[in-house]
Amino acid sequence: MKQKLLFSLCCLLPAVIWAQSTRFEILPFVNGTTTIKEGQLEAGPFFSWKNVSAGRKLAIQPTLRLPLTDKDNNLLQIDRFTKTWRSIVAFQYARDFTTAASPLITGYILSFQGEYGFSEFKYYPTGKKTDALKEGKHSYAFELKYIRYRNVGAAHGKQISPQFRLRYSYDWEAADKVGVVRPPNGNGLATTTDMVVDRPSATPTLSPAAALQYYPGQGNFSYAPALYYDMSGKNRQSNPFNDLHRLRVEAWAFFYPLAEGNVKIGLSPFLSIRTKGDDDYRTLEYGGLITVKFGTTFLQFL
């Protein structure tokens, strides 16, 4: 069985990821946001309330994510054929305890995200175009994230940020296309047509993660050891514990160039160990990861 978990391709090949985003004011307390990332367009309002003097902020962001029809031109076409979409609602609560008098800079960010999407899958179990079957499937995911930060508010002070994330997802995916042999034509030539013959599959996954961001107070590098434990369940079941488990260890070093745009460039070796079940990879896999992020900060990691 092909496991399409986050750790598979993502951790076996070096990856370079960046996004284009913009935020603009619609009304007081309401902003509009758009993001184009990995061939997907996300758009929606952004509601925020804050009491800065008390150090409290609440933000709610409902968004709609749609795949780009033409990635080269950032073109999204919405019509009766648009059958893959995802709605996302994110809540973020931030608390900050920093004062003018105390040297400590400290606080936390707690966020929760729920995702729901509907996709229609078409497949041909007999290998004939006339015998098409359609199935509409609901995918969903939940994510909880906690980011703590604590710095010594002084020149060359150390900065640390422990971070935790828990994500559960239940995603439906179309089966791969296979070549179906057509009957020979008048000249005796047999050809093949690529078709989806299998039903769509759904994999439940649960992935807790923990990381510790650390800046030593000098230089342009920060460091972040991170631990992920990805668990997946059997096809079409909601239990995420009964199939494949993998532990992944990463050790990131981020470089922050003195350039405009809050850029960080990250590099990490990784080690992925299969602790339960079976997949297409070796029990122990290793390799490297690269990332380039724009408009980001030290705190944004998991």
């Binding site: 800065v52 003097s53 150090g55 902020k57 900050d96 920093t98 004062t99 003018a100 008098a101 800079i105 900065q159 342009n220 922050y256 160039p257 003195l258 350039a259 405009e260 809050n262 850029v263 960080k264 980001t296 900060t297 030290f298 705190l299």
Partner: peptide, 20 residues
């Protein structure tokens, strides 16, 4: 922000936090 990576901005007026 002008150059490099800025994580947090704070401003206080008479010790009252007005920008975070």
């Amino acid at each position: 922000p002008v150059k490099g990576s800025i994580t947090l901005f704070y401003a206080f007026v008479n010790d009252v936090k007005v920008l975070w």
